[in-house]
Amino acid sequence: MEKPQEEILRATGLSKTFRLSAKQQKIERTKDRERVAVDQLSFSAYSNEIYGLLGPNGAGKTTTLRMLATLIKPDSGDALVAGKSIVREPEQVRAHIGFLTSELKLEDFFTPNYLFDFFASLHAVVPERAAAQKKALFERFGIDEFAEVKVGNLSTGMKQKASLVISLVHDPDIIIFDEPTNGLDVITAKVVTDYLYELRGQGKTIILSTHIFSLVERLCDRVGIIIDGRMVADGSLAAICQGKCLEERFFDLYVKEAGEVA
């Protein structure tokens, strides 16, 4: 049933360095003026695939995904998303991706119904198609009952579902998802991950970031392990694990890269 895989995304040598403000230096108790958040990161993702970026806090996962979503520009390197450069053609990249993170919020004042239509028009989706997509997705996630409730009055889980649905208004081929299960209860988390699996079945590419090993093991076809902004391992789950469990392999790599686990 699955279509043959093709390369949909290719990142080459992505790097990002942040200048630290005095305030940030104080908070993080460091004298460094700069922080290398992402360091020469390269990887590829294919259709019919869920690719996981796995790494501890501060590894640079969010920064990487933001670069792919064209919200921030890499200092060097580039990535082709559906054949479009994130550096030179950011607008076209945005037309092909759905980006979802807990930091991107929906306005509390509006209803899911209104916001779906609003984002559909930002994506220039033909109204009939948007309506069909809305009906299908709202039913699928049980949002239809809450379609006219202001986002501010929705539960956390329902808000997250609404965000997910709205990030998919334009039926993107590539879905970029930062910490998909963060802050969700097990039931809502399962609804979300099941849906990601379903999207994978439709031939889409899903790139997600997480620090949860079980999520990667359960969901991902391939995984890239990021430590301190560098890709220390990249490949199919089986190739990375080499018979061990993922957690064990991760700590092997971590000790090799960063020394002792403090």
Partner: peptide, 17 residues
């Protein structure tokens, strides 16, 4: 307000110029 609440970034990931 929109910046503070993180709702402006949501629009910025669309092709909206």
């Amino acid at each position: 307000g929109e910046k503070e609440r993180g709702t402006i970034a949501t629009m910025l990931v669309t092709p909206l110029k």
